[in-house]
């Protein structure tokens, strides 16, 4: 391990980084974990599908993770979060980084007609994440350390007709992360808001043109670096920073007529 970039996340010298991964079967999360595993990290993986989770865990173990433990849980069930998180941290004997990756794209056309569908998107992508971050942030504040790395999206930077429910869930998440950072950064806790552009994963493989989306390994590399360097916000691939800056500044009277 490279000692001058591997030490960003607080942990004692030489000890493997302890990372809790929520939604570990996500394509982006898995690619990121492969890089951490190659460095010998300790991982606690949570996902809702046990077969997928077993394959991911086996792979990370073979790649060199010094410790891998797993739990199967549907993260929509917020009441189980405190028990789950306590169990995970006990298993890891501490936690340097929590990586929150679970999320759903949802079915926008159906969500426009049926609030139950809309609510599901908001619940999985926003409410359940807030529930976990509430617990995790307080845990980190007590210890004055930790990185909470959260997958939001460029879609949260401006609502568009093609996916505004997903966008709204991520916008809410980004606003929450901004506020949380404002509260806990001074306590030594890093809140990393990761905003990927379109990435080639299971979430997007049905979309037209998805073969041109960003490669998940490129995205993963940038995320590992952002965690090491304790960034606040990461646009990835990086060109999405300026792109979203422009998009956010298109006047509403023009934007509302666009087909985005």
């Amino acid at each position: 391990m490279n000692s001058n970039n591997g030490n960003g996340a607080a942990r004692s010298q030489g000890e493997p980084m302890k990372i809790l991964v929520l939604g570990a079967t996500s394509g982006i999360a898995e690619a990121t974990c492969r890089l951490w595993a190659a460095r010998g990290a300790s991982l606690f993986l949570v996902a809702r599908n046990s077969e997928k989770l077993a394959a991911v865990a086996a792979d990370l173990k073979v790649r060199g993770a010094s410790y891998v433990d797993t739990a199967v849980a549907d993260l929509d069930d917020t009441s189980s979060h405190p028990t789950l998180l306590t169990h995970a941290i006990n298993s890891l004997t501490g936690m340097d980084v929590a990586y929150l990756a679970h999320g759903i794209l949802g079915d926008q056309p159906r969500a426009e007609q049926d609030f139950v569908v809309a609510e599901q998107i908001l619940h999985t992508n926003f409410v359940s994440v807030v529930s976990m971050l509430t617990w995790l942030a307080n845990y980190c504040v007590q210890r004055h350390s930790g990185v909470l790395a959260v997958l939001s999206s460029v879609a949260g930077d401006r609502g568009r007709k093609s996916n505004y429910l997903y966008g709204a869930s991520k916008a809410g998440l980004s606003a929450f992360l901004g506020g949380l950072r404002n509260r806990v950064d001074r306590e030594g806790v890093t809140i990393l808001n990761i905003k990927p552009g379109p990435v080639k994963t299971g979430m997007t493989s049905h979309m037209k043109g998805s073969e041109k989306f960003a490669d998940v390994n490129v995205v993963a590399k940038a995320i590992v670096k952002a965690v090491d360097k304790r960034y606040d916000v990461l646009y990835v691939p990086f060109q999405w920073g300026p792109i979203m800056f422009v998009i956010q500044h298109i006047p509403e009277r023009i934007f509302k007529k666009l087909n985005l």
């Binding site: 394959a55 991911v56 086996a58 792979d59 073979v62 790649r63 299971g202």
Partner: peptide
């Protein structure tokens, strides 16, 4: 190609 995990070595 996205089914590319190492299972044991």
């Amino acid at each position: 190609t996205a089914m590319n995990r190492l299972l044991s070595f």
